[in-house]
């Protein structure tokens, strides 16, 4: 067991955990944060995407010890409408980009990482940005529509983020 200290959704957190516990299990089972989902368990579906120090990462391919001193964001830590990830979620709802919902938390965080790096991606770049997140319901069109809406709203408000 190790004593692990990291920032989880903005709060400094310490927990006793085996160092090789997968981060997805740590989040879901120890913290009860079930937004990150285990789809494939091998890094191919993106359903377990979280942000670590603001970058998208796959929590099924990370071990607890790797989080020491890092800052982790899951969609639970975000209140709707109050920040960009909240705006992404709201746009997903408006554009019907959520069907079964399994991919949605990972998808929202992948979009957040994309818009951090590139504020105004075109449709092709949006598709590339979410290429690590599989959705078996929507056919992606509505997801891309939602991301485009976030970009144009942001531009309308004259904000960079």
């Amino acid at each position: 067991m190790i004593s692990l200290t990291f920032v989880l959704n903005g709060k400094i957190t310490t927990i006793e955990t085996p160092p090789d516990r997968r981060v997805i299990d740590l989040l879901r089972e120890d913290f009860g944060l079930t937004a990150a989902k285990e789809g494939c368990g091998t890094g191919e579906c993106g359903a377990c995407t979280i942000l670590v120090d603001g970058e998208s990462r796959l929590s099924c391919l990370m071990l607890a010890a790797q989080l020491e001193g890092r800052s982790v964001t899951t969609v639970e830590g975000l209140e709707e409408g109050t920040n960009r990830v909240g705006r992404i979620q709201a746009a997903f709802i408006r554009h019907g980009a959520v069907q079964c919902g399994f991919c949605t938390p990972g998808m929202v965080l992948a979009v957040s990482d994309l818009l951090d790096r590139e504020p105004k991606p075109d449709r092709e770049r949006i598709r590339e940005g979410i290429s690590g997140n599989l959705c078996r319901c929507t056919g992606y069109q509505k997801i891309v529509d939602a991301v485009e809406a976030v970009i144009s709203e942001t531009r309308g408000k004259g904000q960079n983020t």
Binding site: G43, G46, T49, S56, M62, A110, L114, G132
Partner: peptide
């Protein structure tokens, strides 16, 4: 190579 999160890691 891979996908954005894979390339991040």
């Amino acid at each position: 190579l891979g996908s954005p999160p894979i390339r991040n890691m």
